Measured scan of single mutants.
Amino acid sequence: TEHYTFHTEEQAQRAAKKFKKQGLPVTIHEKNGKFTLQVN
C-alpha cells in the first residue's frame, strides 16, 4: 500500500486516474484540508 498526499482534490483525482488506468485500486481520503491518495 502506498500513500501520496496532495494539496488539492483536483491533483489527487488526476493522479488517481493514472493509477486506475494501470488497473490499480485507488481511494482518496480528505484529512485536514489535504487529500491522501491510497494505492493498494
Rank of each mutant, 00 (worst) to 15 (best):
F35P: 02
K34Y: 11
K18R: 10
P25L: 15
G23F: 03
Y4S: 04
Q11R: 05
F6L: 02
G23K: 03
Q13A: 07
T27G: 03
N40D: 11
T36R: 05
Q11F: 04
K31F: 13
I28W: 04
G33L: 02
E9F: 15
K20S: 08
R14K: 11
T8Y: 04
V39I: 12
H7I: 09
F6I: 00
R14C: 07
F6Q: 00
P25S: 15
Q22Y: 10
K31I: 13
Y4T: 05
E9S: 08
H3N: 10
E9Q: 11
H7E: 15
F35S: 01
K20D: 05
K18Q: 10
A16P: 00
F6E: 00
E30M: 09
Q13E: 10
K21G: 08
Q22R: 09
A12W: 01
K17P: 00
Q11P: 01
A12Y: 00
E9W: 15
N40M: 11
V26K: 00
N40Y: 13
Q13L: 14
G23E: 02
K31N: 12
P25D: 15
I28S: 01
F35K: 01
V26M: 03
E10I: 08
Y4L: 11
E9R: 15
Y4K: 04
I28Y: 03
G23A: 03
G23C: 05
G33W: 00
Y4I: 07
Y4V: 05
F19A: 04
V39T: 04
P25R: 15
T8V: 03
E30H: 10
T36P: 02
T5G: 05
H29S: 11
L37D: 01
T27C: 08
V26P: 02
G23M: 03
A16I: 05
T36C: 09
E2V: 14
A15T: 04
A16R: 03
H29Q: 11
K34M: 13
H3F: 14
G23H: 04
Y4N: 05
F19L: 10
T1A: 10
E10H: 07
A12L: 03
L24D: 02
Q11A: 14
P25E: 15
T1I: 13
A15D: 01
E10T: 07
F6D: 00
T27Q: 08
K21Q: 14
V39W: 07
Q22I: 10
K21E: 15
T1M: 11
K21M: 13
F35G: 02
A15L: 06
T5W: 13
T36G: 04
V26G: 02
F19Y: 08
K17D: 14
V39L: 09
H7T: 12
Q13N: 08
T27V: 10
Q22L: 13
Q11H: 06
E30S: 07
V39G: 02
H3I: 14
K21N: 11
T36L: 13
A16F: 06
A16C: 12
H29W: 11
G23T: 01
R14M: 11
G23R: 04
K17Q: 13
N40L: 13
I28D: 00
H3S: 12
L24Y: 11
K34S: 08
I28Q: 02
A15K: 04
K18H: 12
L37H: 01
T8N: 07
K20E: 14
G33Y: 02
A12E: 00
T27H: 07
F6A: 01
H7D: 15
N40W: 13
Q38F: 13
E30Y: 13
V26C: 10
H29E: 11
F19W: 06
F35R: 01
F6G: 00
T36Q: 10
F19H: 03
E9M: 15
A16S: 05
K21D: 15
E2T: 13
K17L: 14
E9V: 12
H29D: 06
T5F: 11
F6W: 04
H7K: 10
K20T: 10
N40A: 11
K34R: 09
H29V: 14
E2H: 15
K17I: 13
V26D: 00
Q38V: 15
Y4F: 10
L24C: 05
E10S: 07
L37I: 11
K34H: 09
A12F: 00
A16M: 07
K20R: 14
A12P: 00
G23Y: 03
I28F: 03
R14I: 12
T5R: 06
N40Q: 11
K20W: 12
F19Q: 01
E10K: 11
K31M: 11
G33S: 02
K18E: 12
P25N: 15
K31W: 13
N32R: 03
A12S: 01
T5P: 04
T5I: 12
R14H: 09
A16T: 02
Q11G: 07
K21C: 09
T36W: 14
H29A: 09
K21H: 09
F35D: 01
L37A: 02
A15F: 09
K18N: 08
N32V: 02
A16Y: 08
T36Y: 15
N32P: 01
R14A: 13
H7F: 10
Q22P: 02
K18S: 07
K34I: 14
K17G: 06
T27I: 09
T8F: 04
E9I: 15
G33R: 02
E10G: 06
Q13F: 08
H29F: 14
F6H: 02
E30Q: 09
N40V: 12
E9K: 14
Q38P: 00
G33I: 00
N40K: 08
R14Q: 12
T5Y: 11
K18W: 15
F19G: 00
Q38R: 07
A12N: 00
N32M: 05
